[in-house]
Structure formats: C-alpha cells, structure tokens
Write a protein that binds this DNA or RNA. Structure first.
Length: 278
DNA sequence: TTCCAGGCGGGGC
DNA sequence: GCCCCGCATGGA
C-alpha cells in the first residue's frame, strides 16, 4: 500500500465521470479499477490523500501515468473559476477532482463504440459482459487488511478475441446493432488497417480523421477515443449533453478557441456538472 | 409506458 | 453539404 498526497484528485468523481467504464465503487471511499490486465484498489483517505493498494513499482510504472498525476489541474481550475464564464466556473469548481485518464486506445475504441445511444449504467453492464465473455480470466494475488478482494477479474478482450467473436455471443452483451461495428473495428486492428498506438504521434485532427475511417466510428466517438485513449486533451467531444449545454448556456455556439490546448478537460467539467445537476 | 441515452450509416435532396 | 430515418436495448 502506498499513500500519495495530491490535490484535485477525487476517486468518486473520476469513477462517475463517464470517461471509463471499469471503475466501480466497493464502498463510499474504496474503488476498484481494471486497466488492460491490471487490477487496482484505491481508497480516498481524505481530500488530498489517496491510498493505492499496489506495489511502489506498479504505481510508478502504471498508475501514476494512468491517472495523469503530473498534470497541473489546479492552475486550470483556478483560471476557470476566476474567469468570466460563470457556467464554466461553477462546473470546474464542482468537478475539481476529475482527471483525464490515460486509457488504452483499443479499449477506448471498443468502449466508446459500445457507448453510442446508451446511458452510462447500460454501457458499464455491456462492457463488463464483453470482458466476461471474451477477456482473459485473471487471478488477484494480493490481499489487504479490511478490504475484501474478489478472487478473480477479467481483462479487457484483445483485438483478436473480438475480431473472431461469435456474432450471437457478441450480441448477448446487449451490443445490439453495435456488435457489427465492434467486430469490424477489431478486425481492422488485427489486419493492421489501422495502428492505434501510432495515432499518438499525429496531430489531433489527423488522429480523429483516421479513427473515423473505422466503420461505426463517427465524429463524437472518434473524439472520445482521441481524448481518453490517446490523451489528446485538446479535442472536444460533443454528445447530447454537451450539445444541450451549448444550446442552453451559449446560444448554440461555444467559444472553443478560448480553450484550445485543454478543451477536452474543460469539456469533462461541463459534462460532469450538467449530468450531476440534471 | 413513454422517453431518452457520451450516435452512426445510409439515403434523399 | 444537410436532414431524416432506422437501428437494439436498458434506465429512469
């Protein structure tokens, strides 16, 4: 176990922010998280202290980067809270513990294809079902005082597992019409028609354009993959919630140019605040 | 029960 | 380019 002091980091807000679908609450303050084939339990000890139940080595090599611990969120929040935009000031103050996770690009691709036209609880169920049916079963080796760990968990499926998936079994995850999108996107990865890792080195708009070449990936899903799977924090995904905010608070035009390099983080505060308060 | 959900592809203009 | 429709299915 490793105690880490950091500001602007709230596990519950991150888990509820709709950017990842495999982080769940075990208690009010304890959360479990699966990233690729890694399993983590973390606990919010107080506002500025997190307990990571893993080795120091695993923390430094995996979770420190995954949670974006190096980025200075405080400066951004201070700027938003003291700015002219009252809606954004409220949103940033409300969601000040959110961080943009550095998720796996393939996992983000499949997860956000699955997400289309579903609500967040339904997405989480479908993703978990997908992992149980097509992911590798892993066993948890560590034990911790006072926290009861599951005996095993399922890693996110590999591209090959989903490319070869039986269509009926895939549809049993409640993927519905998205099942075909998931299978074709996975096949594109297997056949090297797209190299998701290589997109990291491209400018955001080119990465988004390439992602949209996947069948079933449109503007919104491509933006989410870029933001959460490639950590392109300048992209600004517009879903029905964000569109509603823009219509209600900005006269149907959001001044994106004011936020350029970190528009994706701003978007997350807006999304989280609007959903929590509706 | 009805409406809505982190939308997309396709077809008609 | 824009608009509209159908799509599967669970949550609220």
């Amino acid at each position: 176990m490793l105690l880490y002091r950091i500001n602007n980091f709230n596990l519950k807000q991150i888990a509820d922010s709709g950017q990842c679908f495999r982080m769940t609450a075990l208690t009010d303050t304890v959360f479990q998280l699966i990233f690729k084939d890694h399993y983590l339990i973390a606990e919010q000890m107080d506002e500025d202290t997190i307990a990571f139940y893993c080795s120091e080595d695993e923390f430094h090599h995996i979770w420190s980067d995954y949670f974006d611990l190096q980025y200075d969120y405080a400066s951004l929040i201070d700027a938003l809270c003291s700015g002219q935009d009252t809606f954004l000031a409220e949103a940033a103050a409300y969601g000040k513990g959110i961080r943009i996770l550095k998720q796996d690009p393939f996992e983000a691709t499949i997860s956000f294809i699955m997400s289309q036209n579903k609500n967040i609880p339904a997405i989480m169920k479908s993703i978990e079902s997908l992992c149980i049916l097509f992911g590798e079963k892993k066993y948890v080796s560590s034990t911790f005082d006072a926290i009861e760990l599951p005996v095993f968990y399922y890693a996110f499926p590999t591209p090959k597992a989903l490319a070869d998936a039986d269509p009926l079994l895939l549809k049993s995850t409640k993927a519905g019409y998205r099942a075909d999108y998931i299978k074709k996107a996975s096949q594109a990865v297997i056949l090297s028609q797209i190299n998701l890792e290589a997109l990291r080195s491209l400018p955001s708009h080119e990465a988004v354009l390439t992602l949209k070449s996947l069948y079933g990936v449109g503007e919104k899903v491509a933006n989410c993959i870029a933001l959460f799977g490639l950590h392109k924090i300048d992209v600004f995904p517009v879903d029905v919630w964000i569109q509603r905010i823009i219509d209600e608070h900005y006269g149907s035009h959001f001044p994106l140019e004011l936020y350029h390099s970190h528009a994706g983080i701003v978007q997350q505060y807006m999304f989280y605040y609007k959903r929590a308060c509706s």
